[in-house]
């Protein structure tokens, strides 16, 4: 990982994240979010969901790593926002794959920050909307 120069329109290297039920349990423990829709099929079905879902905050947390890796670390992230548009279904056996790509949209006039937008796709659906990261440069 190193700091790289950013230019408008530049695409950052995409990353594929393999999420399994183990990942969900790990995130539940790390974050303290123990909502059973993230690990129990019977509970998910009871509340009308198609199955166990990844925590939205897990998807948000991993998606920004594409930017963290490129700009030189977590400390460079000034502002990060997403909308949770579609859930990520995580099959008990096959898990799920979230593919994240990122593109530089804007560089501030003072040259000190830039806006990078993320695209996160799982099972051919865009799972995050308005996913914008402002980074220090």
């Amino acid at each position: 990982m190193s700091e790289q120069k950013l230019t408008i329109g530049q695409e950052l290297p995409a990353r594929e994240f393999r999420i399994t039920r183990d990942s969900l349990v790990r995130y539940a423990g790390a974050s303290g979010d123990f909502n059973p829709i993230h690990y129990r099929d019977d509970f998910a079905q009871k509340v009308g969901l198609p199955g166990v879902l990844a925590h939205g905050m897990l998807t948000m947390g991993l998606a920004v790593q594409v930017v963290v890796d490129f700009v030189g670390g977590s400390g460079k992230i000034l502002d990060y926002q997403v909308r949770f548009t579609k859930p990520v279904l995580v099959d008990a056996k096959d898990g799920a794959t979230v593919t994240v790509s990122a593109k530089v949209i804007e560089i501030a006039e003072d040259g000190k920050s830039a806006r990078i937008d993320l695209t996160a796709v799982a099972a051919e659906l865009t799972v995050l909307g308005k996913a914008q990261v402002r980074v220090k440069i």
Partner: peptide
Amino acid sequence: REFAKAVFSEDPANHDIEAAKAL
């Protein structure tokens, strides 16, 4: 460290004290 691992972070400053101190 636990949270960083859970969100698939490879940022050394989340895992390695020397890397964080260097920054």
